[in-house]
Every structure is written in C-alpha cells, then in structure tokens.
Lab assay of single mutants.
Amino acid sequence: MALNTPQITPTKKITVRAIGEELPRGDYQRCPQCDMLFSLPEINSHQSAYCPRCQAKIRDGRDWSLTRLAAMAFTMLLLMPFAWGEPLLHIWLLGIRIDANVMQGIWQMTKQGDAITGSMVFFCVIGAPLILVTSIAYLWFGNRLGMNLRPVLLMLERLKEWVMLDIYLVGIGVASIKVQDYAHIQAGVGLFSFVALVILTTVTLSHLNVEELWERFYPQRPATRRDEKLRVCLGCHFTGYPDQRGRCPRCHIPLRLRRRHSLQKCWAALLASIVLLLPANLLPISIIYLNGGRQEDTILSGIMSLASSNIAVAGIVFIASILVPFTKVIVMFTLLLSIHFKCQQGLRTRILLLRMVTWIGRWSMLDLFVISLTMSLINRDQILAFTMGPAAFYFGAAVILTILAVEWLDSRLLWDAHESGNARFDD
C-alpha cells in the first residue's frame, strides 16, 4: 500500500549564491595573561575582544583620537594649579581661619623630617597626573615632529594605576569627618577644581587605549598563520617573532617567553612588605597634641575612634588600611606557593584573586592621604596640633611594595603550573 505524501511548494523562490571570495581570516594573537594562541577576527570600533580561555580583555573598544586626548590633557593642565594650590577646605580653629590644600599637606610631611613619605604622596597625587598630561601632550606634538614615541607609550600603561586623584578625593571626605570634632569646616574653591580634575582624569584614563596608539604610530604586520613560536610582548602586546637582537619589532624591548626574574622580584617585594606591615600596624601612625597632652593612634585605634562619629567612614578606612593590605599579602603568598608547588586545582579562583588584588591594591594609600591633609588643617603649635607617627613611612612603603609585587608577577606562570593543553579552566 503506497502512502500519498503531499508536496510542499515554497511560496518564495530560494536563491543560492556561491561564495565568490575567501572568507576573511583572523590574525593570530597570544593572550598576555595566559599565553593562549588564538585567531582574533577583525574588530570594529566600539567592540571589545576577550581571550577565549581566561576571559582577559585583549582589545578595548573604547578609543579616543589623539586630538581629543590632547584637549583633555590641556584642560587638566589648566585645572591643576587651582586643584593643588587653592584651598580645598576652610576650618575655623580657636577663632582663626585655616586653609588646607594639597601642596601644603605634602610640605608639612616633608617639613617634619619625613621627606620619603611626603614624596610618596607627591608622586601619586601630583607627579603621576602631571606625567600623564605631559605624556599625552608629548605624543600629540611628537607625532607631528617625527619624534620617538616608544618610551612614552611604554610608560603610559604602567602609569595608570599610580594616578590616585580619586583616592585622594575620598581622603578629603575622611579628613573632614575627623577634623569636624575640633573645628567648623567649609569647602574651599580649590575643592571644585579638584573634583573637576578627578572627573576629567577618570574619563581620560578610561578612554586612553595605549594598544590602539601603538597600532597608529607603529603598525606591524600581524601573524596570519598559526605558529607556536609566536611570542607576545608584555610592553606593547604585539604578537610576532623577535628581531635579530631578540627584541620586539614594535617597542624594541627584549621579547622573552616569560617575564625575567618574575618570581624572585615578586618574592622579594612580598617578604619586604610583610616585614614592614608589622611596625606599620604596631607603631603610632598619627599623633595629636591637645592642650599640651599627647595622644597617639595606631591604624586600628584611629579607626575605632573614627567609628564613634561615623561608622560608615570608619568601615571604608578599615577596608583600605587593614583589610586590603593583608588580603593582598595572603593572596600573593598563596599564588606564589601554588606556582612553586605546581598546583593544578582552583586555577579559576587564583586568576580571579590576582585580578582582584590588581584592582584594589592602590586604595591602601588612602590613610597616607588623610594624614597629609589633616596635617595641613590642624597645626596650632602646642594648643592643638596633628602630626604623623613613625608607622606612616612603614605603611606607605608596604603598600608600594605590594603594588610592585602584583605588577611583577607574570600571570602566565600560573598556567605553566597548571596542566598543559587546557582550553578551559575551572575549579
């Protein structure tokens, strides 16, 4: 018995066209964080690309023209004298008006014999932002004059995390709450300039795509075929072959399989920071003279006294001054041990922890910024005066060393310790 099946006739004509040209192939790229070699397709503007294995951002879609970056830099340069030299806060102490600005706080630190601690604050609040705007201006002028731009481009990517104007702005709020127990506070004209400078700096850093600047100024022929001998440069993120001198053909720094002496430098910085954190938390970090009496505060006791007036601000200072430094030390110690013992479990967790400490590390400088600003506000000789204690130097040095330890660690070593050939990683 035959089955009668109805015929289905399409209502619209289906047209099949042959592909007349070869589909576009992607360029081969190595991930600078996990060293995976993959094919990167062509990316349009405002599109980002991520590593298929570790999800690290390979290409950032946010990109401004150099002219727009230069305009932002010149605007920031105009704001800087007002943000640093004009009063941020006014207080009335014992019937006398006192003005506080950024430069005055750094000068008070240096004047009291601790120039190293003052230079830490100076670099993060004044030096690094000033280098940022002058570097962008150098790129703008240098591109037109045919100057060598490689050193500036190499420095810009590392400079971003040292620009800490946003953290200093939080420190202004913390210092205001600490001082309000002794005097009446009012915002100064410099505060508005400083807030504007923070906003412009944040926007500029978020749109400063150094890798795209490398592509514009020093374009290189990408690798179009897969080759395990391809290496990625950690300076400019170019994937290719080393030249005859073993250097990256684009930025001219040595092109090595792994960062040289990464573990040794990381261990040295980490152990030194552990040693410095002990006096930083045991010795007094601030000293207040009130009517001839002397009151010393460690980091913890200062947080407890701050909690009596504002528990939320005390929580912020606790996280930045105690929780973050010790968390960074514990995480980095764990990561280094996992590399030495070739741990194969929990790779995803370790990668996330490394990215976390990379982002939060700079916030530990908050305590030094609060001390710097408070020193310029309260300084009335023996009637009422505020000065920093010996722990300030140890704390600042420990924070900087932990930042350097994270920067010096080559994250690809975590993958080397893991089993080879993993296309995915999980716990």
Rank of each mutant, 00 (worst) to 15 (best):
residue 294 R to Y: 03
residue 175 A to D: 01
residue 406 V to I: 10
residue 218 Y to L: 08
residue 18 A to P: 08
residue 12 K to D: 06
residue 287 I to K: 15
residue 40 L to K: 09
residue 203 V to T: 14
residue 153 L to I: 13
residue 106 I to G: 04
residue 125 V to H: 13
residue 343 C to H: 15
residue 82 F to R: 05
residue 316 I to A: 15
residue 170 V to L: 07
residue 347 L to F: 12
residue 97 R to G: 03
residue 148 N to T: 05
residue 332 M to Q: 05
residue 243 D to H: 13
residue 240 G to M: 11
residue 143 N to T: 14
residue 199 I to N: 08
residue 3 L to Q: 08
residue 368 L to W: 01
residue 106 I to K: 02
residue 38 F to G: 05
residue 407 E to R: 07
residue 298 T to R: 10
residue 23 L to V: 08
residue 182 Y to A: 07
residue 141 F to I: 15
residue 406 V to W: 09
residue 118 G to Q: 09
residue 320 A to I: 15
residue 82 F to S: 03
residue 275 V to M: 12
residue 130 L to G: 15
residue 132 L to V: 06
residue 191 L to D: 04
residue 285 I to H: 00
residue 250 R to Y: 03
residue 223 A to R: 12
residue 376 S to A: 11
residue 151 P to Q: 03
residue 40 L to R: 12
residue 208 L to P: 15
residue 79 L to C: 03
residue 151 P to E: 02
residue 276 L to V: 11
residue 10 P to M: 10
residue 315 G to H: 14
residue 292 G to Q: 09
residue 115 A to C: 05
residue 367 D to P: 00
residue 41 P to E: 07
residue 125 V to L: 14
residue 159 L to I: 06
residue 92 W to C: 02
residue 195 V to D: 01
residue 6 P to L: 04
residue 103 M to I: 04
residue 338 S to Q: 15
residue 43 I to M: 09
residue 25 R to E: 10
residue 364 S to H: 02
residue 72 M to V: 06
residue 245 R to M: 13
residue 88 L to T: 02
residue 202 T to Q: 13
residue 408 W to M: 02
residue 418 H to Q: 09
residue 204 T to W: 03
residue 126 I to S: 11
residue 414 L to N: 07
residue 409 L to W: 04
residue 238 F to H: 12
residue 222 P to R: 13
residue 230 L to W: 13
residue 420 S to Y: 07
residue 181 D to C: 01
residue 258 R to A: 07
residue 118 G to E: 11
residue 263 L to V: 11
residue 15 T to P: 07
residue 246 G to M: 13
residue 45 S to L: 08
residue 11 T to G: 05
residue 274 I to Y: 12
residue 208 L to G: 12
residue 181 D to Y: 04
residue 212 E to L: 15
residue 300 L to T: 05
residue 289 Y to D: 01
residue 13 K to W: 04
residue 31 C to S: 00
residue 403 I to T: 02
residue 344 Q to N: 15
residue 277 L to P: 02
residue 44 N to Q: 07
residue 176 S to Y: 06
residue 106 I to E: 05
residue 258 R to G: 07
residue 345 Q to C: 12
residue 325 P to W: 05
residue 77 L to P: 06
residue 76 M to Q: 04
residue 348 R to T: 12
residue 378 I to L: 03
residue 375 M to I: 04
residue 406 V to H: 01
residue 280 A to L: 10
residue 163 V to K: 03
residue 283 L to A: 11
residue 364 S to A: 00
residue 161 E to K: 02
residue 243 D to V: 07
residue 194 F to N: 12
residue 377 L to I: 04
residue 141 F to W: 03
residue 364 S to F: 00
residue 182 Y to K: 02
residue 161 E to A: 14
residue 168 Y to K: 10
residue 242 P to H: 14
residue 403 I to A: 03
residue 277 L to Q: 07
residue 27 D to P: 14
residue 82 F to N: 06
residue 267 W to H: 14
residue 46 H to I: 03
residue 10 P to D: 08
residue 271 L to Y: 08
residue 322 I to N: 13
residue 63 D to R: 15
residue 412 R to Q: 01
residue 79 L to M: 08
residue 421 G to L: 11
residue 363 W to G: 05
residue 210 V to Q: 15
residue 338 S to D: 07
residue 5 T to N: 08
residue 307 A to M: 15
residue 355 R to D: 13
residue 42 E to W: 04
residue 345 Q to G: 14
residue 187 A to R: 08
residue 87 P to Q: 05
residue 266 C to L: 07
residue 9 T to E: 06
residue 191 L to P: 02
residue 283 L to R: 10
residue 267 W to S: 15
residue 204 T to Y: 06
residue 364 S to M: 00
residue 295 Q to C: 10
residue 289 Y to H: 04
residue 129 P to S: 06
residue 239 T to M: 08
residue 218 Y to P: 04
residue 321 S to I: 03
residue 260 R to P: 07
residue 20 G to C: 07
residue 258 R to Y: 08
residue 300 L to K: 02
residue 162 W to I: 02
residue 420 S to V: 12
residue 27 D to L: 07
residue 360 I to A: 08
residue 199 I to S: 14
residue 68 R to S: 02
residue 401 L to G: 10
residue 112 Q to F: 07
residue 173 G to S: 06
residue 91 I to H: 02
residue 192 F to C: 06
residue 72 M to P: 03
residue 361 G to E: 05
residue 255 L to C: 08
residue 375 M to N: 01
residue 107 W to S: 15
residue 74 F to E: 03
residue 259 R to S: 14
residue 37 L to G: 07
residue 58 I to W: 07
residue 424 R to N: 15
residue 115 A to E: 15
residue 392 A to D: 04
residue 15 T to V: 09
residue 393 F to T: 14
residue 6 P to M: 04
residue 198 V to L: 14
residue 270 L to T: 12
residue 5 T to G: 08
residue 207 H to R: 08
residue 295 Q to G: 08
residue 201 T to M: 12
residue 378 I to Y: 01
residue 229 K to L: 12
residue 83 A to L: 02
residue 78 L to R: 00
residue 176 S to R: 03
residue 320 A to N: 01
residue 355 R to A: 14
residue 173 G to H: 02
residue 219 P to A: 14
residue 333 F to K: 14
residue 208 L to A: 13
residue 327 T to H: 07
residue 51 C to G: 09
residue 20 G to D: 07
residue 393 F to H: 04
residue 26 G to D: 06
residue 386 F to P: 01
residue 260 R to C: 09
residue 79 L to V: 04
residue 410 D to A: 00
residue 284 P to D: 12
residue 276 L to E: 05
residue 52 P to I: 06
residue 5 T to Q: 05
residue 398 A to T: 08
residue 224 T to Q: 14
residue 410 D to L: 00
residue 396 G to E: 03
residue 79 L to Q: 11
residue 245 R to L: 12
residue 176 S to K: 02
residue 61 G to M: 11
